[in-house]
Write a protein that binds this DNA or RNA. Structure first.
Length: 1054
RNA sequence: GCCCGAGUGGCGAAAUUGGUAUACGCGAGAGACUUAAAAUCUCUUGGUGGCGACACCGUGCCGGUUCGAGUCCGGCCUCGGGCACCA
């Protein structure tokens, strides 16, 4: 037999398939449909590298299998050919983008052709084709007519190198994604699409997309960035704050957006973005110079400085004050560039006690920090009640040991599984130091910093985990605590020596007073010092929801903070010292706010701690608010979860007309114009009399004029401005003088709807025939790079929903199942790029090893969505696999030869596995299953035609050329792709005999061959009969025997 | 900093609802064929100890649950991806 010559057979079949129109989309309306789509490529000048086709191979496999399974499959390809890179490439090489684009497309198409894809090229589309972009323009017009496309003059992001405005999404680390230059803000007339109108729907409908990867859905959620809160009105009225301050006649209301209205009581200042329109009006004479200087300074910062690099907060006082509506407090108004005009109202109320940024700012400018800590407990209402009821009695015998002088950053975590919460005990153990040994449950050993072994279990339901923090960040709130649950008698077992050794101060919850104050439990604690008798010393009340509040406390009686008297506010002293509910609970805060000295070693907590506490620890009441005017509202907020407190505050504010519920999105309206040449012209005519007028539908498409000079003008206007004969036109409304819009659309325009056009690519009456759309939509399976998760996929969903709303399409979501393809890295582990000189061209691989080998290899490399480094060595393996298949053909004997039973079973298992794996895009294991089958065939002297044919059928989607060649060589007249996908026999995929695993205490000791359906008792007997097992069970007591059907027997011995 | 995902041989990676860890492929070693090499074929290939049968250890680290954990739970570490002054 001849050798496997991929070059000969691949070009032969590619030609034949084209001639036969084998991949023309099926039209049989009785069949079910399946729409398999790739994200269409942008045809760059560099051509394809081996990474590009990975996704196309997967969809091709899918499409071929679906066709064989009897579906009408739509599997098209096209070109996303407008956009900046094409234009920049054209400029650099002095070729018109029309020409270079067409050339690139031809190259791409040729390269793709060599890989043997089953695209229906009759449906090819190209976004730069006027017959295509006619409909892109049409969609824009529909939006324009409905007010979804509007002109704006706000400053936008401007790339000085690309000489065009960009959308926020086009940035990467504050730089232009395309050319990596620093971008600036520039006021610019531009077209904007009101995508925010669809934010809520796009967010909600994510839940309906069951076959999308959850990571992509998460990204979209983050991108839309919905937050719920309230808009609160702050008054600025005319008054004189100080004699030295000039009197301003202002009567303004400024709105702020906040997600934490429950912290309103802690607002100590107010900030506006430097660009805020009211800034001028509220700046006093005295502050004018400073403010103007600052605005200039802030304006000069580039986008990069303002976000990435500007860690230091800056700002300046305006001289005016706003009135906090909840307590009528006057708070100073500052301007600072950490508040941005683009989000919310461009102004905030600043609560330094509860916001890191505000805290930083307040610290820098010496603004008071005032905490509002609303107690809450992360459990639902019922659970909370249950805790309240159970806690005091259950925890009667709790002893907390507080150990002083900690320098390490460790603490313990105590889980209370029944309450679904945890207690974090801050602190830990110093190196080389033993911790108190406390009776029988004590398992604590100090063996050095990294090898702490902790209490395995304290009590039946309490688990303790060791929690080590970064040593480098030596700045946690440190209160070295240990928690033990002991019986009364057991306490006595702790020796005096041990107690002394650790200078512990013991705090005991001897008695619990269930008196509820402001929704909290008041625990009655007795404090006593080391060396003193247990349960003596003075008792104090601690206002606390939960014992962990006390656990974190480092204040000891010795320092005098707890003097035991009711009105020294001991509870606050304790609580503020430990409750790391916010950064406010730092040394600084405690000092500033209520004069209670924090305990030694108590440092500002970092985020991690803050989060732990704010999620798990109960909060505290707020000392300086409880006794102020707003007693009632703070009182009623006490004992609520943050969420409940928030809602209550909103209610409270709404009742008084001070604010109302509001929702904000990070998603901003889509800046839709580009000041460049190579894009779809925006179909608008500007008329002095009528304003912006849409081009009538009959005049579409507005063709992009073919010009010689297409370099960007640099004035911020599109090069189209200079083409007078194109720009000057007639206003379609009044017939007067009109000028065409010269901005063009961004690259994302065409890609936002292209998938619809494949359904009906030649239609000149509508963008798609609605009946056809009903049949083919939605896209059943969509594959592309993850980099499109937040742009293309958001834009396309937005346009699709809009088209649905105007009745142009039948379904609300365009893509049913979405998978992203993992990158193929170069052999050196870097991205394939000209820059590194590590690009592998598929043409070379196809030439040397064949398209089939490459296709199979790319699928075999690893999990489909995972990125993976290319290895030409690895490719050799799949080539050998194909050669083996080629080789075993010579062993086919006459049709009558009986198939060996175990081989037949393997065949059917493989058919099942390959089918299932393709469906789940686990193509690497599908290939490996076929390899196993082929290895088995190789061992046979003769194989039957039937087995071989079925192998070719399941191989054909992966390696279409070789499969077709061998299929025809077997004497078949019709293409392998016209065959039915083989069915497996469910009877045959079950084994009759299995290797039953026999374990002793969970360790494998023997395997015995038994019937699959062996009865439990028989299996057990057989297992115990085994000599190897006897060895292990001899002179041991058999406790029990576990039997898992079809799997194993486990003998448990003692 | 926040949010996702992932850590398994020399390498790419497998492993149904917890049930024989390392399938399949690459690489490496030994052998066969050959004058020789390449190609091809056969065998070996997680670690340690042992002549050996075999034993012990082993899926990033520390614990937990279980008869049994790569898989489940808690924590940590590292790497990758996304977001990032979003109030």
């Amino acid at each position: 037999m001849n050798k496997y010559n991929h070059k000969k057979i691949e070009s032969k079949w590619q030609k034949k398939w084209k001639e036969d129109k084998l991949y023309k989309t099926g039209q049989d309306k009785k069949k079910p449909k399946y729409y398999v789509l790739d994200m269409f490529p942008y045809p760059s000048g560099a051509g394809l590298h081996v990474g590009h086709p990975k996704g196309y191979i997967a969809t091709d496999i899918f499409a071929r299998m679906k066709t064989m399974q009897g579906y009408n499959v739509l599997h098209p390809m096209g070109w996303d050919a407008f956009g900046l890179p094409a234009e920049n490439f054209a400029l650099k090489n002095k070729i018109h983008p029309r020409i270079s684009t067409d050339k690139n497309i031809a190259t791409f198409k040729k390269q793709l052709g060599r890989l043997g894809f089953s695209y229906d090229w009759e449906r090819e589309i190209n976004t730069t084709d006027p017959e295509f972009y006619k409909w892109t323009q049409w969609i824009f017009l529909q939006m324009f007519e409905r007010g979804l496309a509007y002109e704006s003059h706000e400053p936008i992001i401007w790339c000085p190198s690309c000489k065009t405005g960009l959308a926020q999404e086009d940035l990467e680390n504050g730089r232009c994604e395309r050319c990596d230059s620093e971008v600036e803000r520039k006021p610019m007339r531009q077209w904007v699409l009101r995508i925010t109108d669809y934010a809520e729907r796009m967010l909600n409908d994510l839940d309906k997309l069951l076959e999308w990867e959850s990571s992509i859905k998460e990204m979209q959620r983050g991108w839309i960035g919905r937050s719920e809160g309230v808009e609160v009105q702050f008054q600025i009225t005319n008054y004189t704050r100080q004699a030295s301050t000039s009197k301003l006649q202002i009567d303004e209301t400024i709105k702020v957006f906040t997600t934490r209205p429950d912290t309103l009581f802690g607002a100590t200042y107010f900030v506006m973005a430097p660009e805020h329109p009211l800034v001028k009006k509220i700046t006093t004479k005295e502050q004018k110079t400073e403010v103007e200087k600052y605005i200039k300074f802030a304006g000069s910062k580039s986008e990069l400085e303002r976000t990435e690099l500007a860690k230091e907060k800056t700002g300046v006082f305006t001289g005016s004050y706003a009135i906090n509506p909840v307590n009528s407090e006057e708070i100073p108004i500052w301007i600072a560039d950490y508040v941005m005009m683009g989000y919310g109202t461009g102004a905030i109320m600043a609560v330094p006690a509860h916001d890191e940024r505000d805290f930083e700012f307040a610290k820098k400018y010496n603004i008071p920090i005032k905490p509002v800590v609303v107690p809450y407990f992360e459990a639902n209402g019922d659970m909370k009640e249950k805790v309240r009821e159970d806690m005091p009695t259950k925890k009667r015998n709790v002893i907390y040991a507080l150990v002083k002088n900690s320098k390490t950053n460790k603490f313990l975590l105590i889980k209370w599984p029944e309450y679904k919460c945890s207690t974090y005990v801050v602190g830990g153990i110093d190196e080389g130091e033993n911790i108190i040994n406390a009776g029988k449950r004590e398992v604590l050993e100090e063996t050095g910093y990294k090898n702490l072994k902790f209490i395995k279990e304290i009590g039946s339901e309490v688990h303790v985990n060791y929690y080590a923090m970064h040593k480098k960040e030596n700045r946690y709130a440190i209160a070295r605590c240990m928690y033990y649950e002991l019986e009364n008698e057991e306490r006595d077992e702790i020796s005096e020596e041990e107690k002394n050794k650790h200078k512990a101060v013991w705090v005991s919850e001897d008695d619990v007073d269930k008196d509820m104050t402001y929704g909290n439990i008041i625990y009655f604690w007795k404090i006593f010092k080391k060396g003193e008798e247990y349960f003596t010393g003075e008792g104090i009340n601690i206002n606390s929801d939960f014992p962990d509040e006390v656990l974190g406390n480092t204040k000891t009686p010795e320092t005098g903070a707890f003097d035991g008297s009711e009105d020294c506010y001991p509870r606050c002293g304790i609580q503020t010292c430990h409750s790391v509910n916010s950064i406010a609970h730092s040394k600084e805060y405690v000092k500033n706010s209520n004069g209670v000295e924090p305990a030694e070693g108590l440092e500002p907590s970092n985020h991690k701690m803050t989060n732990l506490y704010s999620h798990h620890a109960a909060g505290t009441s707020t000392p300086n608010l409880l006794y102020q005017e707003n007693k009632n509202i703070t009182k009623s907020l006490n004992g609520l979860t943050t969420k409940q407190a928030k809602e209550k505050m909103i209610e409270w504010l709404e009742e008084r007309g001070l604010g109302k519920k509001a929702i904000n999105y990070k998603l901003k309206d889509w800046v839709f114009s580009r000041q460049r040449y190579w894009g779809e012209p925006i179909p608008i005519i500007h008329c002095e009399k009528c304003g912006a007028v849409g081009v009538p539908e009959k005049d579409l498409p507005v063709k992009l004029p073919n010009v010689k000079e297409y370099a960007p003008s640099g004035t911020g206007e599109s090069p189209l401005v200079n083409i007078k004969e194109w720009v000057n036109t007639i206003c379609p409304k009044c017939g007067g003088q009109g000028k065409r819009e010269t901005n063009t659309m961004p690259q994302w325009a065409g890609s936002s709807w292209y998938y619809l056009r494949y359904i009906d690519p030649k239609n000149n009456k509508a963008l798609v025939d609605k009946k056809k759309e009903k049949y083919w939509s939605p896209v059943d399976f969509y594959v592309g790079g993850a980099e499109h998760a937040t742009r293309h996929l958001i834009y396309a969903r937005f346009w699709h929903k809009f088209l649905y709303d105007i009745g142009a399409v039948n379904y609300e979501e365009p893509f049913k199942k979405l998978r992203h393809v993992g990158l193929i890295m170069a052999e050196d582990g870097r991205k394939m790029s000209k820059r590194w000189g590590n690009v592998i061209n598929p043409d070379d691989i196809v030439e040397k090893y064949g398209a089939d080998a490459m296709r199979v290899y790319e699928m075999f490399m690893g999990p489909f969505s995972q990125s993976c480094a290319w290895s030409t060595n690895g490719l050799v393996g799949t080539r050998k696999f194909l050669e083996k298949i080629w080789g075993v053909k010579s062993r086919i004997k006459n049709q009558e030869s009986r198939i060996k039973d175990d081989l037949n079973r393997l065949l059917h298992k493989t058919i099942k596995k390959v089918g299932d794996d393709i469906k789940e895009i686990k193509l690497n294991t599908a290939v490996s299953a076929m390899m196993i089958l082929v290895n088995a065939l190789e061992k046979e002297k003769e194989i039957s035609n039937e087995v071989y044919e079925k192998l070719l059928l399941i191989l054909s989607p992966f390696a279409p050329h070789i499969a077709e060649e061998l299929w025809v060589e077997l004497g078949n007249k019709e293409s392998v792709f016209k065959q039915k996908w083989p069915k497996y026999n469910p009877e045959l995929i079950k084994d009759e005999k299995i290797q039953l695993v026999v374990q002793v205490n969970g360790k494998l000791r023997d395997t015995i061959e038994v019937d699959v359906d062996i009865f439990e008792d028989d299996a057990k007997v057989k297992a115990l009969e085994s000599e190897k097992i006897k060895k292990w069970t001899k002179s041991k007591e058999i406790v029990k025997i576990i039997f898992v059907k079809g799997k194993l027997v486990n003998v448990v011995v003692k």
